[in-house]
Amino acid sequence: MSGDSRAIVVDRPGSHRLTVGAPPEPGPGEVLVRVAAAGICMSDREVYDGHRDAAYVRYPVIPGHEWSGTVEAVGEGVDPALVGQKTVAEGFRACGTCERCRCGETSLCGGGYAETGFTEPGAFADHVAVPARLLHLLHPDADLAAAALLEPAAVIAGAVRTGRPRPGERIAVVGAGTLGMLAVQLLAASSPGELVVIDPRAERGRQALDFGASESLTPAESEAYHGRFDLVVETAGAPTTAASSCLLARRGGRVVLTGMFTPGAVGIDPVHLSLSQLEVRSVFGAPSSAWSDAVRAFGLGLLGPAPLITHEFPLERFGEAVALVGGGDPKTGKVLLRP
């Protein structure tokens, strides 16, 4: 490989630098991808601020786990026909051989945690090297900016698989951030009888209607809907939303938690849980099957993340970009880095 390749390196919490050097060399079984776009999410902000659990980050690190790009080179043993193809890739470096991986639950890999952008070099860079087995190829005409949101879309696809929506059901989505909006699009494809979004931000609620929701409510308004929904998909990760999501579900209903909760979050009432016979599941990351679902939905036009993108920055302005994420401005949606 020739030419320079830039990367954002977070040496320690609150400290980053832009490096310039030779592109990484793809090893055996790997590909080198030229990054087209990389999304910044709250997990990246937690890495930068030092709030991510120490078991799930390794400094110094090049962040960036939500990304898209084009294969530029391949390592030993990889089909050279991949060069030039648009792609995204799974973040978890699952071993593929443990019991959970053999059962298809690659996000529960027992081989130890390793993930692009957290313990392995990520995509806040001109190039990223990843195992070829993790690639999900895109259509040649795919919008690579929108495709950078396929990582959170895969998480939501995993939640939808877990929630098993059926036509005609009453469904609630708690939270209208990136995950919530993507959930609305995927759940709308299941032909629900109702698809209600709950978020305190009126502007986000209105956008959810454009994405396929039938109604938008504030948390206060949603109290009148307790016990109504067959399926509740929680995406906010706010201190109270795990408990409030269980209150929204009908007796015997299903609740899927996708938000990343912090210590001190309000617990689920075990009395309500047992008397209501709720099925409660959580989602962390996405297995390979959910990635396949998300990429297929994107290719079919069932998933259109582009309207969620509100800001794009070059690598040199990473400091400004990461400051926007979690800053509280309701007009800030998905923030992208465009190397």
Rank of each mutant, 00 (worst) to 15 (best):
S2L: 09
G3R: 00
A7W: 02
I8W: 08
D11P: 13
S15N: 14
R17G: 01
V20S: 06
P24C: 00
E25M: 10
P28L: 06
P28W: 03
G29M: 05
V31Q: 12
L32R: 15
V33F: 06
A37R: 05
A38P: 11
G39T: 13
M42W: 13
M42G: 14
D44I: 06
D44N: 12
D49S: 10
G50F: 08
R52C: 07
D53Y: 05
P63K: 02
G64M: 03
E66D: 04
W67C: 06
T70I: 15
E72C: 07
E72K: 03
A73I: 05
G75Q: 09
V78A: 12
A81P: 03
A89V: 01
A94C: 03
G96Q: 10
L108S: 02
L108Y: 00
L108I: 00
L108C: 06
C109F: 09
G110K: 09
G111M: 12
Y113R: 11
T116Q: 15
T119P: 03
T119M: 02
P121K: 12
G122A: 10
G122L: 12
A123G: 01
F124M: 11
D126F: 14
V128P: 02
L135R: 01
H136G: 01
L138G: 00
L138D: 00
L144K: 11
A148C: 03
L149I: 01
A153T: 08
A154Y: 09
A159T: 05
T162I: 05
G163Q: 07
R170T: 11
I171F: 11
I171L: 10
G177Q: 07
M181N: 12
M181V: 07
M181L: 15
V184L: 03
V184W: 04
Q185K: 08
S190P: 00
E194Q: 11
L195W: 08
V196N: 10
R201N: 09
R206V: 09
A208H: 09
D210R: 14
F211Q: 08
A213P: 08
R228S: 14
L231R: 12
L231T: 06
L231G: 04
E234W: 15
E234R: 14
T235A: 14
A238R: 07
A238H: 09
S244Q: 13
L247Q: 14
G252K: 04
R254L: 12
T258M: 13
M260N: 13
F261Q: 15
F261R: 13
G264Y: 12
G264T: 07
A265H: 15
I268C: 09
V271F: 15
H272C: 06
S274G: 05
V280F: 11
R281F: 11
R281H: 15
S282G: 15
V283P: 00
V283L: 06
V283Y: 03
F284K: 08
A286S: 14
S289C: 03
W291K: 01
A297K: 05
G304M: 05
A306S: 15
P314F: 10
L315G: 09
F318R: 05
F318S: 04
F318V: 02
E320W: 00
A321D: 01
A323L: 03
V325C: 04
G327P: 04
P330A: 02
P330R: 02
K334I: 00
V335S: 01
L336D: 04
L337E: 04
